[in-house]
Write a protein that binds this DNA or RNA. Sequence first.
DNA 1: CCCTGATTCGC
DNA 2: GCGAATCAGG
Length: 202
Amino acid sequence: MSWTDERVETLKRMWAEGQSASQIAKELGGVTRNAVIGKVHRLGLSNRVEGDDQPAASAAPAAQPAAEPVVATAPAEVPRVAPEPEPEPEVEAAEAPEPQPAPQPVFAPRRPIVPAGQPLPPQPSANEISPETLASVREVEKRSLKLSLMELTERTCKWPIGDPATDKFWFCGLPSTAGKPYCEAHVGVAFQPMSARRDRRR
DNA sequence: CCCTGATTCGC
DNA sequence: GCGAATCAGG
């Protein structure tokens, strides 16, 4: 593969969007992330500065940030969280009534009635899980990356959250435990000792 | 380990 | 110009 104008354009666009070199390489195909990075440098756009003007000047862009005033979130990380800045304003809008209306709390204190819908994920009843694990799961689900099916990888927690029949459905997405399909917290509720779930009666 | 970008240097 | 290898860091 060679750097045709078209490919370079894609590279520029994606790089500007904050996509990582590997993502761009994947998209282009036929090149490695190294190739992408190399090209980025040769094109002289290693500086992911949005506004065209280059503050290059002299001064020191890295003049000891000393104290980041407000948000301490690494700016470079942000874009990766939302890899799809697509033209779909629907999702946002006036949103977020309740971050966690708890569609189907995994820890339902007395598992009410399961609406005979899709086979819900393995959701052991609360009385089988330790309080610590429960708390952990609750915490984790607040921080879940809410990945879609397509965004899951070998190393993301595949624990489903919410009702598959609605829009309130996503996957945990946090880093999974080595070799396991779930993150640490979810492994806790997914894999239990036989003895613990033996006396489950209904 | 997984990942990121940066740099080098033979081609 | 290109990009694998390597480096440095999270």
